[in-house]
Structures are given as C-alpha cells and as structure tokens.
Design a protein around this nucleic acid. Structure first.
Lengths: 214, 214
DNA sequence: AATTACAAAGTGGTCTGACCACTCATAGTT
DNA sequence: AACTATGAGTGGTCAGACCACTTTGTAATT
C-alpha cells in the first residue's frame, strides 16, 4: 500500500494519492484539503514532498491555496490552464490566424451537425433565436448558442478556450448587415439546408473581417 | 528586477524566470538546464523553492529530470499533459463520442481547406500520397499528413491531443476497401473537389466504424 | 599503452527543523 | 455589546543535512 521508498519519484506518487484523497473524501469544488503538515503525516512523507505535489496541482489550477487559510479544491475551468497553454503549448503558433481558423472549423461543424440532425431543425427554438436578433446581441453569444445546440461539449470547451486567445472580434455587437446574414443563416439552419447555411456563415465572416488584412 | 520578497507566490515567479532563462539561453529540446543548486543561487532563492517550480513543470511534462544527471527540457508533445487532462479537465466529457466528433470536425476542415486552396491541389505531392497507399499504411498516419498539409499547426496539436483519448481505431492498418475510398478521396483532393472529397471521407468513416455501435 | 577499478564530484530526491506572514477564532478588555 | 489583543493554525521560504545515482577523472593493474 505504501510504495514509498527508493527509486521512483515520490512526489508523483503523492499527486496520485491526493487525487485519491480528493475522491475518497468527496471533497467538492471550493472544499478544503487537509493541511500540508497533516498530509505529510498521513502519507508518511516530508512536508516538502507534499508541497512539491501541491505546487504542481496549483500551477495546473486544480487547487488554490491561501496563506493562513489552507488549500482548497478549485474550479479549474478557470484561467490558469489557459495561461499555461498560451505560454508553452501555443508558443510556437505564431500567427493568430490558426486560432481563428480552428475556431471557424468548430463553428462550421456545429452548423453542419445541426443541419444533418433530424431532430434539431424541427424545433421551434429557432424562432426564439430570430427574435433575439431584433435586440442588441453579441457575436460570441449567438455563435456559442449554436455550438451548445450542436451538443458537443468538448468542442464547446475547446472553442471557449480558443476564444480567449483570439483578438476578440467577438465581443462587439452585431450591426445591421451581420444580423441580416444571420437571419438567413438561421432560416436555412431551421430547414437543414447545409449548403446555404454555410454560405451565409462565410458571408458573415467576411463582414466581421472587414477591418483585418491577414 | 527582483520582485522577490513578501506577499505573492515566489514559486510562480520562478516559473516565469525559468521560462525566460530557457528562452534567453536558447535551450533546445533535450538540452540541459542549470542544476537546482545553481538556479537557487542565480535566482537568489532557496533550493526548495526552485524545486517546487521545477516539479510543477515536470508534472506538465515540460521538463524531464534524471537523478544524478540533471534537468532537461523535454518534448512536451509527450504524455504527461494528456494524462492530466484526461483525469481532470475532461472528466465530465463522459462520452467518447464527443472526442470522435471533434476529431472528425478537424479532419474534415483540413480537407476543405486543402480543396479551397489555390496552391495545394496543384502540387505533385498527391501522387506520392497515392503511392503510399500501395504499401501498408496506418490510418492515423495518412490523416495526420492531411492535417499537416492543411497548414494549421494548432489544429494539428489539438487533433494529436484528442487522438490519445480516442479508442484508437486509428492504430490499425488500412484494408483494401479503405484504401479504395482514400484513393478516390485523394483524387478529388488533388483537383479541389470539396463535395466529392468529403463524401469519400464519410464513406471511409463508415468503413472504420463497422465494429462500433455508438 | 591500454584497460580496469575505484574514488570523488556533481546531481536530483527527500527529510527535518526553523522562521516568517497571514488568517481566524477566541478570550479579554472596554 | 462592541472592540481589541492574543495565540493557534496555515501556507511560504530557507538552510542544512543525508541518500541514491551518474559521470568523470585518476590511479592501479594488466
């Protein structure tokens, strides 16, 4: 039960143990972990070893630690990970172009998925959607809705992640022309006309890129 | 220059410093970092603090350490990060289905990108591709090539990451029928016929999914 | 001269004990 | 009742000590 001693990376073992502990004790997001000193005693290792494991998890944003208070399980759908990915993983992806391209791939796929679904384009949600376009609406809000409806949570997560790297042409409100394109897009989405839907999507993209040169 | 003292997370600062050091000293993948003791002295912090930073980067798979030898910058397109993501980040993405769907989205987009490119489908690389199909060839190898050609490094990275979660229907060799579909796919890719290319892609996917029920 | 054997230096891995800075609950004061 | 001071508990950091392991240089052997 205690593969403590020599040879291989104790602190990695502690990371495992911590994951187990979090699971076993059913510690919820925001919940408190035992103190470093207590963990050291319970796991029969030095405090520094426990700390190395904890610091690793902290850098990942899995836990959060507050001096004088303790260590807490954090909601890791936060920022840490994004920053890390940006500095290390994405470091050599020099052009923001890839980010935009990949986002558009996900967006288009959502549209296509919806079009090909027998169920989705029969629902009346699309009318509610069209109503939304009457009001002030953010670009990112409506495209996010589309991805949500396409029912691919993973794609949504990735899209969300990428959005934070993008130059944020998504944060602005739609103008009249954009809304016009979207109305046509939604209309075709409703009846499952993939070709036309994608076509209007591209048209919309051209409108939003009016400023950019890349 | 030295925001050492009190208040905020020294070890996070060290992580930054290390990143800078790696960049400044132009340490390549596989290259050696200064020893922990030397780093401690150069950065004017205790060795344990340096270690906390190093251990974090190790858990991320950014560095690799060998006892008695030293610390090395590692090729982080390896495994660590994937395992972590699988246990923490992707924990609530229950269905493997999303993984497959998202991968296919990226794959299809690569195909579409290539078709729409004026340059790509005029090159003769496609003949070499067709030759490859004569030999034994892994499914993942050929689809990876496609994504590489589409020239979106970010998409490639994400695809690579996802592949490691997939049930690996990619690791097997192509059978005769699959090769047939791919030949047709490539032929259309060469002339930029998006419709047909995607169509044959879908056909291929049907062939590979013969075992699955989902 | 070449090979082997051994010792030393250097490195990461871990533990211990000691402070510091901070938070919080509580006892004590007003 | 409201406020204040104290102390216990917690994370943050450091220094020093071993240990296990690898590499390297040197001395002994062949």
């Amino acid at each position: 039960m205690i593969p403590n001693n020599n040879s291989r990376k104790m602190f990695l073992e502690i990371v495992k143990q911590l994951r187990k502990l979090i699971h076993d004790e059913n510690i919820a997001v925001g919940g408190k972990l035992p103190s470093e000193r207590e963990l050291a005693e319970r796991l029969q290792v030095g405090r520094s070893t426990v700390r190395e494991a904890l610091r690793s998890l902290e850098l990942l944003g899995i836990i959060e630690t507050r001096r004088g208070e303790g260590t807490f399980l954090s909601d890791f759908r936060k920022h840490q990970l994004v920053e890390l990915l940006s500095t290390f993983i994405l470091q050599d992806v020099k052009s923001k172009k890839d980010v935009h391209t990949t986002m558009q791939a996900l967006e288009k796929d959502a549209i296509r998925t919806i079009c090909m679904s027998d169920v989705l384009h029969k629902q009346s949600i699309w009318d509610a959607f069209l109503d939304k376009l009457q009001e002030e609406v953010l670009q990112e809000d409506i495209i996010r809705e589309i991805i949500i409806i396409s029912n691919n949570r993973l794609a949504l997560k990735i899209w969300f992640l990428l959005k934070q790297f993008a130059d944020e042409p998504y944060r602005s409100f739609m103008n009249v022309e954009e809304k016009k394109a979207w109305k046509l897009l939604l209309t075709n989405l409703k009846i499952g006309n993939e070709q036309q839907a994608i076509s209007y999507y591209n048209e919309w993209k051209l409108l939003t890129n009016r400023g950019e040169i890349k």
